[in-house]
Structures are given as C-alpha cells and as structure tokens.
C-alpha cells in the first residue's frame, strides 16, 4: 500500500496509525508527477490533496475513507468498539479532539507570512482553547482516547493534538494543553505507547524537517 503524503500532516498520520495498528504494510511516498497538482496526481485524486492511497489498482482519498478501507481490509484488531454506543462515542471523541481542534489550528496557515495579523492569531488561540476545553471533557484518557483500548478516537485525536503541539508555538501560543489534566495525561502516555509514540516521533521528525526547509 502506498500513501502519498507526509506523515506530519495529521490527515496522513491518521492513516499511519490505523495501518500500523492493523498491521498493514504501507510506505509513504512523494506525489507522482512531481506535485499534488500535477496531471498524474490529479488523475488519482481530483482534489489534489493528501493523503491519497494506492493499494494495487484501488485508489482512495480522504483520510476518513482510507481509514475505513484499512479497517475493512482485515477483521483483526478492529478500530471500533463492539458495543454500538461505545463505537458512536469513540467517533464523537475523535471528531471533537481531532476535527474541531485541527480545523482551528489550520487557520494559522494563513498567518505564516511576514504580515501576520496578531488579532487573528489571538482569535484562533481563543477558539482553540474552547475546543480543547470540550476535548478535555469528552476524552477518556484511560489511557486511550475512548478507554482501555486503541480505537478510531485515537486515530483522529492523536494526530491533531500532536500537530497542534508542534505548530502553534511558532505563533507564540505556548503549551496549548496547559492545565487540562486528562489531555496532558493522554499525550504523556501516548509518547510511551509503542504504536502511538512511534507515530508521534515520526510526525515530529517530519515536522522539524519541514520547518527547517521553510526557514521557520
């Protein structure tokens, strides 16, 4: 399985977490055709986005769909709790700590240039604090996001929280998790977890290389 993209993108890290958990061999690769907007790449994914996955003749894009594809590929080590309520809760936790957090953090990409709007950065910081408060409420951190087992909640939550911790300090937002105890415990445990810690390390390495290449 080839995954086009870089692992420090939270969307790509979701795929890495799911595939490593399920024991599915995969390699990350730069885009075919030399770029994500090249005709070759756009033929695979008309949106020109990462991650895009190729498994034999099957091409899949959108991280959530790739994760579902990986889940369906083998029945072992399901990402979903068996009980319907627990499975729905895991999705919910993943949405809050994953999507809402990252959608907010990614607004900072518009503030990377020299003409940074400090007011806009502060607005993002305030919005992020609001979503982190809600994530703190819903995350189980026992030690995984939805409870005692690694689930779809971790696949969504961990990459967003990890990217946030790497990215927002560049904008003067220091220690975004702050005194939120469950989130802090979750991240501390994740670093020691073989699967999650491995992905965190790879995300950080990828991020630092990107940061250096951009002179940030």
């Amino acid at each position: 399985m080839i995954v086009y993209g870089s692992i420090f993108s939270p969307y790509c890290a979701r795929v890495a977490l799911a595939a490593r958990h399920k024991g599915i061999k995969h390699t990350f690769a730069p885009p075919v055709g030399g770029g994500y907007k090249s005709p070759e790449f756009l033929k695979m994914n008309p949106l020109g986005k990462v991650p895009t996955m190729k498994d034999g003749k099957t091409v899949v894009f959108e991280s959530a769909v790739i994760v579902d594809y990986i889940e369906a590929k083998s029945k072992k080590k399901s990402l979903y709790p068996k009980n319907a309520k627990d499975a729905a809760s895991a999705r919910m936790i993943g949405a809050v700590a994953g999507d809402y957090v990252h959608n907010t953090v990614s607004k900072l990409f518009a503030q990377m240039g020299p003409d940074r709007d400090q007011k806009a950065v502060e607005a993002v910081a305030a919005e992020l604090a609001k979503y982190l408060d809600i994530a703190e409420k819903v995350i189980a951190a026992k030690p995984y996001a939805a409870g005692a087992k690694f689930t779809i909640a971790d696949v969504f939550a961990l990459p967003s929280l990890a990217f946030m911790e790497l990215f927002v300090p560049l904008f003067g937002i220091v220690n975004p998790i702050g005194g939120r105890k469950k989130l802090a415990r979750y991240m501390a445990k994740a670093k020691k977890d073989k699967l999650m810690g491995g992905v965190l390390k790879d995300m950080e390495d990828g991020f630092r290389a990107w940061q250096k290449s951009r002179g940030l």
């Binding site: 099957t58 899949v60 769909v65 579902d68 594809y69 889940e71 369906a72 590929k73 319907a84 309520k85 499975a87 729905a88 809760s89 999705r91 919910m92 949405a95 809050v96």
Partner: peptide, 30 residues
C-alpha cells in the same frame, strides 16, 4: 446522549438490522 452526525448515523445504523448503511468489503466501503 450523542452529538456529531457521523456518530449518530453510526449509532442508528447499529439500532436495527434493516438496510446496513456501512458496507463490509473494502471496495464497497470506499
């Protein structure tokens, strides 16, 4: 109590056996 439509749809899907909304094979899932 649940929020987020994806979570609610998944919960409703598990409520009855009629018309499974999430197919099982990788190809159909995609």
């Amino acid at each position: 109590v649940l929020y987020e439509s994806a979570a609610i749809v998944a919960y409703l899907d598990a409520k009855s056996r009629k018309n499974p909304l999430r197919p099982k094979t990788p190809k159909a899932v995609v």
